[in-house]
Write a protein that binds this DNA or RNA. Sequence first.
RNA 1: GCCCCCGUAGCUCAAUGGAUAGAGCAGCGGCCUUCUAAGCCGUUGGUUGUGGGUUCGAGUCCCGCCGGGGGCGCCA
Length: 560
Amino acid sequence: MIREQIAQWVRQAIDAAATAQGWEISELPAVEVEVPRNPEFGDYATNAAMALTRLLRRNPREIAALLRAHLPPQTEEWMERVEIAGAGFLNFYLRPGWAGKVVRHILTEDQRYGETQVGAGKRALIEFVSANPTGPLSLGHGRNAAVGDTLARVLEANGYKVEREFYINDGENSTQIRNFALSVWARYRQLKGEPAEMPEDGYFGEYVIDIARWIAEHHGESLVQDDAEATLKRFEQVATQLMLEMQKQDLQDFRVVFDRWFSEQSLYESSAVQKTLEQLKANGYAYEAEGALWLRSTAFGDEKDRVLVRANGVPTYLAADVAYHRDKYERGYDMMIDLWGADHHGYVARMKAAMAALGYDPSKLHILIYQLVNLYRGDEVVRMSKRAGDLITLREVMDEIGVDALRFFYMLRSHDSTLDIDLELAKEQSEKNPVYYVQYAHARICSIERTAQERGVALPPFEEVPLEALTHPAEVALIKQLADLPHEVMLAGTQFAPHRLTAYALDTARAFHSFYTECRVLGAETEALQAARLWLVKATRLVLAKTLSLLGVSAPERME
RNA sequence: GCCCCCGUAGCUCAAUGGAUAGAGCAGCGGCCUUCUAAGCCGUUGGUUGUGGGUUCGAGUCCCGCCGGGGGCGCCA
């Protein structure tokens, strides 16, 4: 919050100085306020003067001096002094007592503390997971779910109205769905002792046999028709429905709830696919060649043109997906996000090209690519089963290490880095395990508050408590950390970097543990200090609980 | 061959183009009569893969190499 305040003052100073000096600033440079590595350089610093050098062609230190002279008067309420240093930094030195103001602000905001307004009044759509209904969700889908849901929560905290959507790949002419249905049917017949061959590109996972068995138990022979195609259709419907229900359950248990389940098949039934293809033709970006219908995606930078309708007349996945995204654009969101696995990255250019071909602004569509997840047990890689197709499922890992640990581990790295998860570490109850480290800080706070209550410690309202008494270095360091939450939430949202929150949570927990060791809360030197620290502890709890809730991780009141 | 991600301490990773590149783990040495030791404090550890370039300033941006991973279908 202080950061944003300073940034605002600096922007005002730039305006004021520009008016006084007759500067013409076409585009205001982004004002960056940072905490200098070296405390000698103040509590906060900005490079605004340096950023203006290129524009104004003047010595940055001169600019810095002018900016300092034009800082609004309120600055003095917070700042002891503002210095010009180095190449043209403005260094801000806070007045003693600022820390108390921060704590008071947090307590006033209460559970809303950390939220921002950067997305206020805007609607965002995030489409994620969108797995094929041909099997259980994998460990990779779990990463998608964790990143997508956390990003959704973060965007909500930034004021966006967010909708979470799952695109069901249930197109009935999908090759993969057909192979899946053929596989289930083959397994079913094998269970009956009939000779049946699995298809070449079939699904050989163990779970397919489970599905066949389930069908035998629940439907008996009732799905088998005289006509083979009709039988296949019945198996397809039952099996994909079963997988979809399983995926929904897994996601729900993983604390991911979607607002909408969008069916690919519905795009055919509403003739949205047809209309989309016609519009592409009308716009001159779809043409026939070699018996197929092609998207002229090269017109928008793609490497080659892409097939929309195969020579056999069946539309490709792309055709439906373009129709789907057209539907999204027509719904009028301010921002749309897709979260795709690394194996789909080649698809980005053609989707953006398709949107441009339809006349939409491709920059509203943000396609995030996440990288692979490797699973370890200690030093050993957990391999997939020898039987092709048996992936490690989200369910298995979630059941083994728990939702809290798994969600936290998923968010430990940027989505565009490959991620290693060590099951042993995730289950370990020690300082090595980052989840427990953070949760323990929260539990410790709750323990202090419980003890205070048991002992009947009187705690006046925070308005009446001298929070300015919080001046111990450990207290100040903690408060500075707490002050950063809104900034972190903003960055996590605007940079699509929700993993920043785990780092922030760890830093906050560290600052608290350090404070805990150095400063006694109950039984502090004076009653006033004890009260101030109790309020600081509460502010810390609010911040940790908020951060964890954005991550979808629980904040336990005790860990014993 | 083309595209994407990655390359920073022994290991796993941070660092919106800013000041002396930081954490955790591992290693070493300390701290529990007290509100939870699932904690804290100290300490060792670096030619940011490599060669150029851009500029007041590059781990960060651009180009070329090297290495690791992934992807390049009228599959999804």
